[in-house]
Computed example of a mutant assay.
Amino acid sequence: MRRDGAVSSPNPSQRTLPRGFRSPLLPGLAVAAIAVSSAWLIHLAVPVIPFLTAAVILGILSANLPGISTAVEGILQPGLTLSAKRFMRLGIVLLGLKLSLVDVAELGWKTLGIVVAIVVLTFAGTLILGKALRLPGDQPILLAAGFSICGASAIGAMGGVTRADHRATVVPIALVTLCGTLAIAALPALKGPLGLDTVTFGYWVGASVHDVGQVVATAQTAGPTALAAALIIKLTRVLLLAPMVTGASVVDRYRRRHKANAPMDRGTPTKAVVAPGIKLPPLIPLFVAGFMLMIVVRTLGLLPSSALEAAGIVQDLLLAAALFGLGASVRLRSMLRTSGRAIVAAMLSWALIAVLAFVGVQLI
């Protein structure tokens, strides 16, 4: 009521919108939805650009173009943060529906062993490189997961178990996306000079390129046979996401418990229980358990093909929204100024997995 006794008129938006529709999340979520639609249209117009890669690029552009960047840092931030964190985990759960243990078993123990060796050696090598270059925080393990397993999805999963702030995943995701995008042009150009036949080229792409969409874009240049070979090898790498992330969770629990129980000084005995207020991460994060459950569902054939296709579409949409949100956290000037060592580590890791995969596929 105004001082003169008249009843003041409510704000039109408050009068017409219920409280739930005035959520601070809505602007960011709405922009993410628009960006996902735009990324899909870009992919349709230029199929060589993977859908998820287009989403990341749009996010990076939104964070660095004058005018838009102000909104990204302000009113859009809550919704974009939700997209980056929650949608990523939901998308990883649905990613499990792309994997059938039957298809993996058909590769044979030799091929499976080679793929596992490539992933483990790339992970260990990238982790060592990151440590040697003194990358900050969780960047070494995030880069290792992204380059060895399945790109941005693996970085999001590893960030979830190490409890890294979602902003800490920005540089690794930007770099793995950059290298994966470069692979779309670089690997087909090397097919002839390296003397690779169609199937071997597909194996090499599946064993060395990071994101599933980037694998499709790269392998399809050599035809459907190469694409089929690339996808089965790539999805076998994705299968390793669960054990690698679970292993990281076990190590993280041990480190946190050890830190919590460490004696304050030489005269203080080590406690047998975790100190109050120290919350240990779950042994198997819920979204990783969901990912493994979806693999079982796909392997047992519990869902019809129409449901699997629908789940695949939803998964792509969730991951695209998540990657747009993460891309919107990338400040190019800041990254180029402070992430020189991360760029070096990424390029060396990219070269490492390309060489290991090339040697490995010669043995298949």
Score class of each variant (00 low, 15 high):
Ile233Cys: 06
Ile278Gly: 01
Asp211His: 09
Val216Thr: 08
Ala228His: 11
Val238Cys: 15
Val216Asp: 05
Arg257Gln: 10
Gly223Cys: 04
Lys279Ala: 15
Ala217Phe: 00
Thr236Leu: 07
Ala230Phe: 07
Asp197Cys: 13
Ala228Trp: 01
Gln220Phe: 03
Thr221Tyr: 00
Val250His: 08
Val238Phe: 12
Val212Ala: 12
Val251Gln: 08
Ala262Gly: 04
Gly202Cys: 11
His210Arg: 02
Ile233Ser: 03
Met244Leu: 15
Ala262Ile: 04
Gly277Val: 03
Gly202Ser: 11
Tyr203Thr: 04
Asp252Ala: 13
Ala222Val: 01
Gly195Leu: 12
Ile278Met: 11
Val212Asp: 04
Val215Tyr: 06
Gln214His: 01
Gln214Leu: 00
Val273Trp: 05
Ala275Trp: 03
Arg253Gln: 15
Val251Thr: 13
Asp211Ala: 12
Asn261Gly: 01
Leu227Thr: 14
Leu235Ile: 15
Arg255Val: 07
Asn261Ser: 12
Arg257Gly: 15
Val250Gln: 05
Val251Ser: 07
Thr225Phe: 00
Leu280Glu: 10
Ala275Thr: 09
Ala229Tyr: 06
Ala260Arg: 03
Gly223Glu: 04
Arg266Asn: 09
Thr221Phe: 03
Val274Leu: 02
Arg266Ser: 11
Thr246Lys: 07
Ile233Thr: 08
Leu231Arg: 02
Val274Arg: 00
Thr218Val: 01
Gln214Arg: 00
Val199Lys: 13
Ala272Thr: 13
Pro224Tyr: 04
Tyr254Leu: 12
Thr200Glu: 10
Val215Asn: 04
Ala207Asn: 07
Ala229Gln: 05
Val274Tyr: 00
Thr268Asn: 04
Ala228Leu: 08
Thr218Leu: 01
Gly202Leu: 12
Ser208Lys: 10
Thr218Ser: 01
Val250Trp: 12
Thr200Ser: 09
Ala248Asp: 02
Thr218Lys: 00
Thr218Ile: 00
Lys234Cys: 09
Ala230Gly: 09
